[in-house]
Nucleic acid binder design. Sequence first.
DNA 1: ATCCCTTTGAAGGGG
DNA 2: CCCCTTCAAAGGGAT
Length: 581
Amino acid sequence: MPQLNGGGGDDLGANDEMISFKDEGEQEEKISENSSAERDLADVKSSLVNESETNQNSSSDSEAERRPPPRSESFRDKTRESLEEAAKRQDGGLFKSPPYPGYPFIMIPDLTSPYLPNGSLSPTARTSNKVPVVQHPHHVHPLTPLITYSNEHFTPGNPPPHLQADVDPKTGIPRPPHPPDISPYYPLSPGTVGQIPHPLGWLVPQQGQPVYPITTGGFRHPYPTALTVNASMSSLLSSRFPPHMVPPHHSLHTTGIPHPAIVTPNVKQESSHSDIGSLNSSKHQDAKKEEEKKKQPHIKKPLNAFMLYMKEMRAKVVAECTLKESAAINQILGRRWHALSREEQAKYYELARKERQLHMQLYPGWSARDNYAGNYQGKKKKRKREKQAGEGNEHREYFPNPCLSLPPITDLSAPKKCRARFGLDQQNNWCGPCRRKKKCIRYIQGEGSCASPPSSDGSLLESPPSSPSMISPSPSSKESKPQTEQMQPLSLTMKPPPLLSSSQHQHLSMAPPPPLALLDNSGAGKTSGSAHNGSLDPSDVSSSRSTGSASSRPISACHSHSLLPSSAPTQPLSLVTKSID
DNA sequence: ATCCCTTTGAAGGGG
DNA sequence: CCCCTTCAAAGGGAT
């Protein structure tokens, strides 16, 4: 470890990644210290971090490791600290047993450089060289092991015992998180059919062997830590790097398997067409081809935590709600996301972090900007959503789904956050916090329409969790969170549907009360709330995005009516939707 | 055939 | 530094 900075950082350590969780990254560190929640988080993270990392550290000298975004680094360092602590606390140490069930083995690849961008080794070679660590029982691509994410999915063969659980009872085959539904995070271009539809499929070194499998339940596997990642990355680099993007050395290995993130722009068969094309056009086409060549395949952005979560959960939601419309589903997912416990979210954040890291390594030169409309051929135009000022939101009640059955809150009276109410165009009218992407004062306070009735609306079922931050005044409360996971499903499940009314209540009842959250609330306000753990506080997050949340969220409707006690008022209710009444 | 919708998070750019 | 915009997934709906 590069220096753990010692103890100093314990607390902070936890935070680092937390940033993601926190809405603004504000403060809180201090507060959090005490909170057990933090610890939990820290633990989680620690768990996430693989020991290997520590090992790596030793090797850390290599810059490669550091290469990763500063953030990550900081994160690591911090995490390490936290990790260490956690380790002490938990196992006493290393993850003797995998923190997460899914974690089959620990890889301890040799970081030394192979992967480094500079490095030019062939993956295989590297792996071979490297530290053995545990290998996957079955035939896994050598590289695969490197990535600890989860093996489950891939393992065609037999999953490790602990993994068994994930195995689909029916088939007996280890199943991917959400079976059929989930598509690889990075869909491959049509041509690449062979690829595995695994959420993190693109990580898979070779077909069938996804590197980052996601478990159904959520990512239960410990994330390998940078180490593994690096290793995996290196392998990936060598194997998948798009030539153009790849530094010379990397180009060496081309499996030919496109990285999920890489999408060939509509390219599709144009090239072939061109071939076919008449001579006349040949010139033209040639030109085109060349251009295309120039144009690099479209490399997609790495998925963020929420996107990963969506991928994983979408199928469930669809099944539960029978909805198909993505917009509606996404709303639900958004709520569920907020409902997730910190731990759960942490998993996704961690995973996302890794993805970003990997992505960076794979495509060093890539910039999100590259994907902006027009920057690459594939993309057509940007969708600009300029919703006209006020209008947009208000009306927009996009609510197709019965599950969501809540009445769209179309009318003005409906409480909305400034962004929703006024729209982007009229930001002048927004309250300060909204402008800053913070919690809407008006909305919360209840000024005008903003005020909150919404909170009341039961929609909160899920929300409770969402606002955990608010809620939990006491650290202990945090612990309660776990429920959320279980709960989640409930919340959404509305199958009965459309007419849930009575049933809804039931669900509601089932739904986890907002246990955590409500209490604390705002006072602490965002600061405090979020603060405690920093990162995870969903509420903050939501708040940050004043946008939609405030506005009606039909979804919640699914369940119901509000459980929330008025107590919560201060909180942003972002999640709350209008009650059916 | 495209874009929109919807969600959260990340990143880039402008002021 | 703050804020805004765009994109990532996804699939029905709208244009």
